[in-house]
Amino acid sequence: MSELIELTNLCKSYDSRFLAVNNVNLKLPKGKIIGLLGPNGSGKTTLIKMLTGVLQPTSGEILIDGKPVGVESKAKVAYLPDRTYLSGGETIRQIIDFFKDFYADFSVERAEAMLQTLNIDLDKKVRTLSKGTKEKVQLILVMSRQADLYVLDEPIAGVDPAARDYILRTILDNYNPEATVLISTHLISDIEQVLDEVIFMRYGQLVLYTAVDNIREKYGKSVDAYFREVFSC
């Protein structure tokens, strides 16, 4: 079985009038970098949250490596949410210990090396870090895992171009090549050169799932240009 993620009739509604994710059927392979693209409110984050188990589907099924979302899938998925979950009086070293204890695929050496590159003191308390540094630490923690699936929700949103480059470099230099990387973003131009495949979403529905090369060959456009055409207001 080459599929890593299998979504069947997946729906999520927050209230009875609105479906945030509307009947999505999708099979994603192993070993690809996939862009989950769509305008704000298209259901990207909702879809990602359901994949990682922090949100329950209203209906439908999610299989990751053939298993429903649960203890086993969580051991294989490295998730970078669109918010900071690091807080409190713990030091970065203590958080590294936390990750080491819970994730068998976590590399302490890799995490420490990346933090050293950024001159981040391991004994600094998380609450003393700036928002940007917290986000970088969180990314480093996620990318220090040898996971089967990396789910990155808006990793480059709201950061300056230099930080954006650093984040993309960190992702590309550290991900497990046999793994799938699912990156949600609406900043397509910054990311499209690293993508193998793209998923377009609108109003909670799947609009398109195809290879990046296919878009270039078929429409003679970049992903960014094609996205603008599809989602023009």
């Binding site: 922090v54 203890v71 051991a75 998730y79 918010r83 819970f102 994730y103």
Partner: peptide, 13 residues
Amino acid sequence: TDQGYLTHTLPVS
């Protein structure tokens, strides 16, 4: 809260 994003993605029951 936001910390739940870490808690609920740990491989634990």
